[in-house]
């Protein structure tokens, strides 16, 4: 035994895993000063708070199409850049289109425009991980941009009825034509 370790208790082996059980600070904060609800009554957010938040979201949804037109303008601008350019320029423009498609697909459904989510999801799948963008592929990207444009400019909420179904069909045809070419 070496001198410097004499009299020392043997070192406790380092535990491989530690389990921490932290105090639930958030629960303590939101229930501070509150009395327990009568048995059978559901806790959590009050109905009034949820209704207020629903009203806030509905108001945002009403403004959505107007706001999204700025994003639409960007989408169309990047499409123009992609179609006018080649090589790296085209690839960069398509990368930006893909990023906008990702944003739009997350927004549409939240604000009552499921067709925006549907078309943007398809556009995202069509543009992600693509290194070489052919002119034919670019035409399908344009078909997606046009479909999103119609939905937003004409305020087509929900499934869009007949116009919505016609847009879905036209886009499916454009994709099928590309895939069989």
């Amino acid at each position: 035994m070496s001198d410097d370790k004499q009299g020392q208790p043997p070192a406790k082996p380092q535990a491989k895993t530690r389990i921490f059980k932290p105090r639930n600070k958030l629960k303590a904060k939101v229930t501070a000063g509150q009395s327990p609800l009568p048995p059978g009554e559901e806790g959590g957010f009050s109905r009034a708070a949820l209704e207020k938040a629903e009203a806030e979201l509905a108001e945002a949804a009403a403004r959505y199409a107007e706001w999204a037109r700025t994003t639409l303008d960007e989408l169309l601008e990047f499409y123009r850049e992609a179609s006018a350019g080649a090589g790296d320029v085209r690839q960069e423009a398509v990368r930006k289109i893909s990023r906008i498609a990702h944003e739009l697909r997350g927004q549409g459904g939240t604000f009552g425009y499921p067709l925006v989510t549907s078309f943007a999801s398809s556009l995202f799948r069509f543009t992600e991980n693509e290194s070489a963008i052919s002119d034919e592929r670019l035409l399908v990207i344009k078909a997606h941009c046009d479909a999103i444009r119609v939905v937003l400019l004409q305020n087509i909420t929900g499934d869009g009825g007949e116009i919505g179904q016609a847009l879905v069909k036209a886009l499916q045809q454009a994709i099928a034509k590309f895939q069989t070419a």
Partner: peptide
């Protein structure tokens, strides 16, 4: 377990 109504006024 008893349920509580949340008060988020002190939450950040």
């Amino acid at each position: 377990m008893a349920a509580f109504r949340y008060d988020f006024s002190a939450v950040s």
